[in-house]
Amino acid sequence: MLTIKNLHASIEGTPILRGINLEVKAGEVHAIMGPNGSGKSTLASVLAGREEYEVTEGEVTFKGKDLLDLAPEDRAREGVFLAFQYPVEIPGVSSTNFLRTAINQVREYRGLEALDAVKFLTMMKEKMKLVEIDQKLLSRSLNEGFSGGEKKRNEIFQMAMLEPTLSILDETDSGLDIDALRIVSNGVNQLKSKDNATIVVTHYQRLLDYIVPDYVHVLYKGRIVKSGTKELALELEEKGYDWIKEAIDSEATV
């Protein structure tokens, strides 16, 4: 589904990603872990098409298409979803109105008819249960005055509504208490299918107790320096990142 080859990206001339290789197949869950500043969130942003990042080398194909060639909105319409680490507030625009605009633009791109109000609301009611989100929250201005947990739940709710093929969760666990973490993870797990894939970007192993990954990758200094199964995450939890850092840094100095 997603193939990343030798991906290099920089921001304002500073290289952040220095040759990422990754293959994600349908039905898989990949966790990207790593110390602060290793490039985890940059990878998520580059895949979604954030403009501040310049891709200097490498290629990314998504469902056979050159992903880097697509505008951010077209990547979304092709089925790439990014759950933001810091969801943005849009005053005066209700979540409902926002989502309806989004869904209908995605549908238009795919040659589908716009959803009428009744169908849209029926769908909303159904998906709301997944993340235990209150309808009142959805009629308020998007993310304005939402608590950290409400914002993250709203991200997963949007994901449920947009039914993406590739979901990238960028530090979705940050700022969540244990209950919210459970609810959010529960939502993500219910959305999992053999046809879609998930990339979970996280600093802590905690989230991976709930969303169990098939693969775990450690990102350090812009490269994937170690890959493994979910046991790797447990090892990291126990030993921290220093042993990996040391191994890589000593290699580099040789």
């Binding site: 979604a48 505008a71 951010p72 909105e73 990014l82 989502l99 605009t101 989004a102 947009l162």
Partner: peptide
């Protein structure tokens, strides 16, 4: 903000429609 626009884009909303959405929300 570019953040607001990118957020809308990431949900499949074109930039022009994003501006309309944000401005109408602001003037609501």
């Amino acid at each position: 903000g570019e953040d607001q626009l990118f957020y809308c884009n990431q949900r499949g909303i074109s930039t022009e429609d994003a501006v309309a959405l944000i401005v109408n929300g602001y003037a609501k």
